[in-house]
Design a binder for these strands. Structure first.
Lengths: 192, 192
DNA sequence: ATAGTCATGTAATGAGTTACATGATTGC
DNA sequence: GCAATCATGTAACTCATTACATGACTAT
């Protein structure tokens, strides 16, 4: 239940309305955590009920400004220091790679090439972003820079890996769709 | 809705029962896509209703063996060639990094250190796995090796990044919990 | 006989998405 | 006056998790 903690985190920086938070999710947290408007307002209600946040002001158009409470801050720090659950093992990208033998080698290479191109575009965007905020007036905090660096290194890795993989996929016999023998699914066993 | 495609992918390799698929998810796909038993049986029903798979045999204990149909194969290949939706922008790990200023620098470094250690453990496991399947009797397909290589490179990157980040976190004034000024949330704007 | 594994299902709950619905205020 | 933006909420649906429930077969 990380939406809750994302919201507590944002409110720990100062009071805000649901509308404000929504915008923050769209810009600051866009690459880290996404949330929809419906979700946000529902969760605001729940957090307020639980006493982790409270309404501190009401403005025009029914605007309600929320602030984090002491209990909320405590919960935020508790979450930050609890042992991380291992990262979610679910990647549509890899799932496709796993079943790429259903396509022709040429189509499979095209898939990897597409991944590489996307990664390169993302890398470019992040590089520009780094320059913009790097020495801008609203300098990133250390932690923002660390997160940005992750994006940068990650997209570089993705494009390198995809380019490498492309060269690994060569013409293969016996894998024309429908003719491969059963039992040939690639194994990627977890050792527990 | 990738569970559907994961199941079609597995069945494209040969007929199997729900029970068989469950085991395959636990071993072969453990690092790529997870599924629970409830989910699996429910989805089998839906896929059969949709005509993408069909029951080809019944065994003891009510065992039902399913096989992919032509329609299912077509759907699988369609999914493999459709443009990839951009990867899910939701990472609990990064979310925590973003709000690490709520902790003391020492605690924040401990968090990064924990990430690095986990990554190093994973890297070791994958290395061993690579050796085992690398020249074993049930050799990995090219695609399985490509996926494994991603895991290997990814965990190496994670540990390097986390170790680097640890050195970036130094003692800071004004960030004792509760005393930082509003408006200092790190920005990581997406450029759209 | 009885423990282990094979084998399938249902119910409750939580989390997330899309679409719908409504209305106030501000700037031109 | 009107368009844009501010602002909050509800409803229906899908996806995933956990727990519960049941029973057949196999090997010792």
């Amino acid at each position: 239940m990380s939406l809750k903690h994302a919201m507590l985190g944002l409110l720990s920086d100062g009071p805000a309305s649901g509308y404000d938070l929504l915008k923050t999710f769209d810009v600051s947290l866009a690459n880290v955590w996404t949330a929809t408007q419906s979700q946000l307002y529902a969760e605001l209600g729940r957090l307020a009920d639980a006493g982790l946040i409270e309404v501190t002001a009401e403005g025009p158009r029914g605007r309600k400004e929320y602030a984090i409470t002491e209990a909320g801050l405590t919960e935020l720090r508790r979450w930050l220091t609890e042992p991380s659950p291992s990262h979610p093992r679910r990647s549509e990208m890899l799932l496709r790679v796993f079943f790429l033998n259903q396509l022709s080698p040429e189509q499979a290479r095209a898939y990897m090439r597409g991944l590489a191109e996307n990664a390169e575009r993302e890398q470019e965007q992040l590089s520009r972003l780094k320059e913009v905020v790097g020495q801008g007036k609203d300098a990133l905090s250390v932690y923002g820079m660390i997160a940005l660096e992750w994006g940068l290194r990650g997209s570089a890795l993705l494009s390198e890996w995809a380019r490498w993989a492309e060269t690994e996929i060569v013409e293969h016999a016996g894998s024309t769709p429908g003719t491969q023998p059963p039992g040939s699914t690639p194994a990627c066993t977890r050792e527990t």
